[in-house]
Computed example of a mutant assay.
Amino acid sequence: MTITKQDELDALRDIGRIVAKTMHTMAKALEPGMTTGELDEIGRVLLEREGAESAPQTTYDFPGATCISVNEEIAHGIPGDRRIAAGDLVNIDVSAAKNGYYADTGATFRVGIVRPSLDRLCRDGRRAMQIGIAQVGSNKPLAGIGRAIGRFASDRGYTLIRNLASHGVGRSLHEYPEEIATWPTRGETRRITRGLVLTVEPFLSRGGLWAAEGADGWTLYSDPRAPVVQYEHTVVATDRGALVVTLPG
C-alpha cells in the first residue's frame, strides 16, 4: 500500500508494534528443551491479547500462528513437537493484521552459545537488512536494495537465497510490489514512491542459493544445504529515507 494519511500511518505503526513485541517476547522465552509449538503458543496468546490476527493463518491457512524455523529449516517452519536445543539457530517470523492493516517482521536468534561462524553470520545478516533499509526512500531505485545487499554479501564471502524476496505489505500480507529482490538483478527499473510500504528481508547464507520446499508442503530448506539467517522489518518510504514501523515501542 501507499500511505497517504496520518491515520493510515498510525494504524500501520500499531500493528507494526504488535508484531515486533510478539517476536521479541517469543525470543526472550526461548530456552533449550521447549518445543516450537510451545513457543508459537506464546505468540498466539500475545496476538490475541492485542486484538490482532495471525496473517499466515488467515491468508494461507498456515498451521501455526507464527513461522518458527530451526537450523536447516530456513523459512515457513511449522510449529510443533520439535525440541529446541542449545546451539540452535531459531528464526521467528511474525506477521499479523489489525483493523485491516498488516505488518511483517522476523529475525534469527541464537539459543545459548553458537559456533563463531554462525554468530558472525547472524551479525552480518542483521547488517545486510540494515544496508537494504538504507536504500529505501522516495524516488530511489527499487533495485538499489538488492545491489547494496549483494555487494555486502559478496565482499564477505556470503551467498543470498534468490527465490525468497521482500514484498509490498500494508492492506494485505503480500501486495505490490510483490517481489523485491534482495540480490543484484538486471532489468528492474521501478522506483520507490513516497509512502510505499514494503518489507526488507534478505536471507544471508554460507553457500545456499535457493529455497526448496520440504515434504510437509510448507517448510523451506536451503539448496544446496547451508546455514541461512533472515532479518526483516516493515518500512515506509519517506523523503528522509525509511521509517521502520516494526519496533516494539
Results as ranks from 00 to 15, higher is better:
Glu72Ile: 05
Glu53Pro: 01
Ile68Lys: 06
Gly87Met: 08
Ala85Val: 14
Ala65Asn: 06
Ile84Pro: 11
Glu53Gly: 03
Ile74Trp: 12
Ala65His: 04
Asp81Met: 05
Asn71Gln: 08
Arg82Thr: 14
Phe62Cys: 13
His76Asn: 13
Ile84Ser: 08
Tyr60Asp: 13
Glu73Thr: 08
Glu53Phe: 06
Pro79Ala: 09
Asp88Ile: 04
Ala86Asn: 12
Leu89Ser: 03
Leu89Trp: 01
Arg82Met: 15
Glu73Ser: 07
Val70Ile: 15
Ala65Ile: 03
Asn71Glu: 11
Thr58Cys: 03
Gly80Phe: 10
Ala55Gly: 02
Thr59Leu: 09
Gly87Ala: 07
Asn91Asp: 01
Ile92Arg: 05
Ala55Ile: 00
Gly87Asp: 01
Phe62Pro: 06
Arg83Ile: 07
His76Tyr: 03
Ala75Lys: 10
Asp81Trp: 10
Ser54Asn: 02
Ala85Phe: 04
Ala86Ser: 09
Asp81Gly: 05
Gly87Phe: 05
Ser54Ile: 00
Gly77Val: 03
Pro79Cys: 06
Asp88Cys: 01
Thr59His: 14
Pro56His: 08
Arg82Asp: 11
Ala65Gly: 09
Gly87Ser: 01
Thr66Phe: 00
Gly77Met: 08
Ser69Gln: 02
Tyr60His: 10
Asn71Cys: 02
Val90Cys: 05
Val70Asn: 01
Thr66Leu: 03
Thr59Ile: 12
Asn71Met: 15
Asp88Gly: 02
Thr59Pro: 02
Pro79Glu: 05
Gly77Gln: 00
Ala65Lys: 04
Ile68Leu: 11
Ala86Cys: 06
Ser69Cys: 05
Phe62Tyr: 15
